[in-house]
Amino acid sequence: MVTNADVGGYDVVEEAPKVRRIINLVSGGETPGYGSITTRENLWFFSQLYGLPGDEARKKIVSLIDEFGLTVYVNTRTHKLSTGYRQRLNLARGFINDPKVLFLDEPTLGLDVITAKRIREIIRSRVKDDSGRCILITTHYMVEADEICDRIAIIDRGRIIALGTPAELKRMVSTQSIVILETPPIQGGTSFLSSVEGVSGFSQADEPSTGRIKLKVVLKDESALQSVLQSVTSKGGKILTLSKSEHTLEDVYIALVGKGFE
C-alpha cells in the first residue's frame, strides 16, 4: 500500500504549497476565467495566482498569446470566443507558471480537427527535449495518446492494467489478429461474441449511412475467425465485408479490457 507521494521531489501532504507552485491543471470542456474580461486580462489574472511579477507576467503572456495563436483575440472579452479559442486560452493558462508537471484532462474534447491537431503539436513541443517536464494526459482518444504520449497507462475500473510505450503496448497484442466485419444489425445484440472461444475482445460501431454495424474483433489467433463468422451468421447476421486490421492502441484496449468504449 502506498503511504506517501511526491511531485517534483515535494511531499504532496507536507509540502503542498511547494507542489502547487510547480503544477497546473487544464480540463477539456471547462472554461475557467471570466467572460467579462479580455483574453489578456484573463491570462494576467491567472499569472497573479502564481505571484508572477509585472514584467515577467507581461512577457509570459505575450509569448503564450503568440504560441497559442490568440493574437487576434487578445483584447476580446472571452465570452465572445469560440469553443476552440477558449480551449486555447485554457491551455495557455495552464502554462502560465511554466509548470514542471501539467495535468491535462481530455485537452481536445469537443474541438474541431484542426484546433485539436494544433493543440497536440503544442503539447508535444512543450515536452520535447525537456526531460524535467512532465505532462500527464487523461484521454479517451487512443489516436491522441498514440500520437503524443511517451508512456501510456490503461486504466480499467480504477486500476492500471497495462503500462508502457505505445510500441510496447502494441507488442502485447501482436500475436493476436484483428478483423473488421460489417453486418446488418443483429437482433439481441452482439454480446454473444465475448463468449466465442478465441475472442479476446470486440467493439461495435453503428454505421447510420449504410444501416450496418461494424464489428472489430480481436482474436487470440486466426483460427478463431471461423467460429466468429459462424456465430454471427447463426444469430441472424450476414457477413457483408470482412477485412484484417493493423494493431492500434484501441485494439490493445479492447484486448485488455475485453470490450470497446462504452
Binding site: 471570466y34 497573479q48 495566482l49 505571484g51
Partner: peptide, 30 residues
C-alpha cells in the same frame, strides 16, 4: 520563475488581481 514570490506576496497579488477582475468586469458593462 525567477525569484519566486513568498506565500504572503502571492496571496496579496491574488487578492488584488481578483479585485481588479471584479472592477474591470463591472466597468466593461456600462
Amino acid at each position: 520563475m525567477s525569484n519566486p514570490a513568498g506565500a504572503f506576496q502571492i496571496n496579496v497579488r491574488a487578492a488584488i488581481a481578483r479585485a481588479r477582475v471584479r472592477i474591470k468586469g463591472t466597468l466593461h458593462d456600462p
